[in-house]
Amino acid sequence: MTDIAPASETWTVAGRTFSSRLIVGTGKYADYAQNAAAAEAAGAEIVTVAVRRVNLSDPSQPMLVDYVKPDRFTFLPNTAGCFTGEDAVRTLRLAREAGGWSLVKLEVLSNTAHLYPDMVETLRALDLLIKDGFDVMVYCTDDVVMAKRLEDAGAAAIMPAAAPIGSGLGIQNEVNVRLIVEQARVPVLVDAGVGTASDATRAMELGCDAVLMNTAIAGAKDPIRMARAMKHAVLAGRDAYLAGRMPKRLYASPSSPLAGLI
């Protein structure tokens, strides 16, 4: 059974066009093989990756690129672990050297239990990265005014959190996500907080262009099955959004005719 989606239903970010509106992370999996299987089941075309030191004491350790292959997926390198703009530039330059990737995910987290991003440093890092020639998708809070600032500063995409990273609490801020979608002229993606399929559908129903998730899949009891669920959830939400939902009513409106009763 194939999923019926019009060939024209693609989305574009920084001049790059994709069919899948589901971006998946590569963290927290049992192993890289499961990771690769989940990314396939999700129908993802883009995966986020981190940049870290090679383990020199064990060069035979499995490498991500041997399972989640860079000729099969677009890698979206992130700045996880970077708390300053300078760290972000340094890290992403290495990612660009390692694989030619210039479309990147900027995340400058706060050192807190909630891990919400430090927007002041994020804005600063965004400027530095754009000057260095990167196309930057920015992980941000749901501050509608800040989202406009990021876009005006040249962000290729705005990626507000629905809830804290890895919390699975779902869309906690529907009003703000909708407002960000309404004002943005670049893609908007919910990134962080999605927990189950209905959360992803909800994000798409609010008008998001795509959804980014990691723990929702990797942390499920059956990650491959959840990856599949998420693929369908994003498709369902996108179709529902484009279909234009029925209005909500305060009272009933019968579906069967009143005339012709026996």
Binding site: G25, T26, K28, A50, V51, R52, P77, N78, A98, G99
Partner: peptide, 30 residues
């Protein structure tokens, strides 16, 4: 020493006493 060494220059770039070298790879992340 805080400068990227492109692959094309690996053979031509020396390793000198006191160099600070970082070797990185892609790993899983969200």
């Amino acid at each position: 020493n805080l400068e990227i060494v492109p692959k094309s220059l690996h053979a031509a770039t020396p390793v000198a006493e006191g160099d600070r070298i970082e070797l990185v790879q892609f790993v899983g992340g969200g």
